[in-house]
């Protein structure tokens, strides 16, 4: 076990844990943002540089600070390490720069982008960026290419996190897409024009932090904050899929099916294309209850979820509220992440 101090908070984690995961153990506002790191995908991380933190002391043995900021998602902790994230002005400054860099070639087409409302870059820019740009030149654009019937590729929006490449590598047998080209001309593509055709291809949509890969069966149907996520499951015949999903309702219609994500937007169980694209009737599913969405998320603006109040942890509730709760207990549906 290693004990580290992260933003002044002590936390103990197993050896080999990354700084980011140690911070996630603390949770809340101190967790560095991550645009390319994805826990279930081996080898991901280190690319977007959004999670850079300052290591003020390397370890108990060697308490010298690290000369450069390090990517917290790939740097393992050492016992006695002291890490500064939100407490370091340098880190916040650099992060501002990273937002600026990422937004150079990312179009601000959020009003017509299906990812808006659940976009990592949107959140990242909102939390860490500035509202102006110093970039005046022409922005990079790409010819549209068709990569198949289910997944829509908007290369112009891509931030080259490589998550979809790792997903295809680690979930499927034959990856047909990858990064072509170099520098700011690199693009996700299939060489030569090819369609992505396998049972798990839909998962690239869930891992995409931006709207570069979206669900063709859901395109332009509804803004995400007007829909209500419900956790549900079904008996899936696919051996690698256990059918645990989130259904996104508008009224009585299932508009979209996604895998279940945790608070950091990470998929825990991959789902197959049949569950994702073909089962869009409530009758196909056993409903478990509302999926938990963070209060701060724009998806919560619909206030679909009943307040989760636990009198045991909130000590000073007014008596009237306690009485009220006893008479009308809040529905216990699903709970956190189902």
């Amino acid at each position: 076990m290693a004990k580290i101090t992260f933003d002044g908070i002590e936390v103990e984690v197993p050896d080999g844990t990354t700084i980011l995961n140690a911070a996630r153990k603390i949770g809340g506002g101190v967790v560095p943002p991550a645009m390319c790191y994805y826990t279930p995908l081996k080898g991901s991380g280190g690319k977007c540089r959004a999670c850079l933190v300052r290591v003020a002391a390397g370890s108990a043995k060697d308490p010298r600070p690290m000369p450069k900021l390090v990517a917290s998602c790939i740097t393992p902790v050492q016992d006695g390490m002291v890490v500064e994230n939100t407490t370091s002005p340098q880190v916040l400054d650099v992060r501002k720069g990273i937002v600026e860099m990422l937004l150079i070639n990312h179009p601000l087409d959020c009003p017509v982008c299906d990812q808006a409302g659940e976009c990592d870059l949107q959140n990242f820019a909102f939390e860490h960026g500035v509202s102006t740009t110093r970039y005046e030149e022409e922005r990079r654009t790409f010819e549209k290419i068709d990569i198949g019937p289910y997944v829509q590729l908007h290369m112009t929006r891509c931030i080259l996190c490589y998550r979809c490449v790792y997903t295809a590598d680690q979930l499927t047998d034959g990856r047909v897409h990858g990064v072509l080209g170099r520098g700011d001309a690199s693009e996700i593509g299939t060489y030569i024009e090819n369609i992505i055709d396998n049972d798990f291809s839909g998962n690239v949509i869930d891992v995409c932090p931006v709207g570069a890969l979206t669900d063709k069966t859901w395109r332009f149907k509804q803004r995400v904050w007007f829909t209500k996520p419900m956790n549900a499951h079904r008996e899936c015949s696919h051996e690698k899929c256990n059918g645990h999903v989130t259904l996104w309702y508008k009224g009585k219609d299932v508009l979209r099916v996604t895998a279940r994500k945790d608070e950091y937007g990470e998929v825990k169980e991959w789902i197959c294309n049949e569950c994702r694209f073909d089962k869009k009737e409530t009758a196909d599913w056993i409903i478990e209850g509302p999926a938990h969405v963070d209060r701060s998320s724009v998806v919560s603006q619909g206030h679909y979820e009943l307040p989760v109040i636990n009198p045991q942890v909130i000590a000073d509730l007014p008596e009237s509220t306690v009485r009220d709760l006893q008479q009308n207990p809040p529905l216990k549906l699903g709970g956190f992440n189902g």
Binding site: K47, A50, M101, L102, E137, G183
Partner: peptide, 25 residues
């Protein structure tokens, strides 16, 4: 450097191109 950046990490991918464009100007 703009031409030779591999494009993997964001500051270099976007920054080298930006530098080149401003210097060109």
């Amino acid at each position: 450097y703009h031409h030779e950046s591999c494009g993997q990490c964001s500051p270099c991918r976007e920054g080298t191109g930006w530098l080149e464009k401003v210097l060109h100007r």
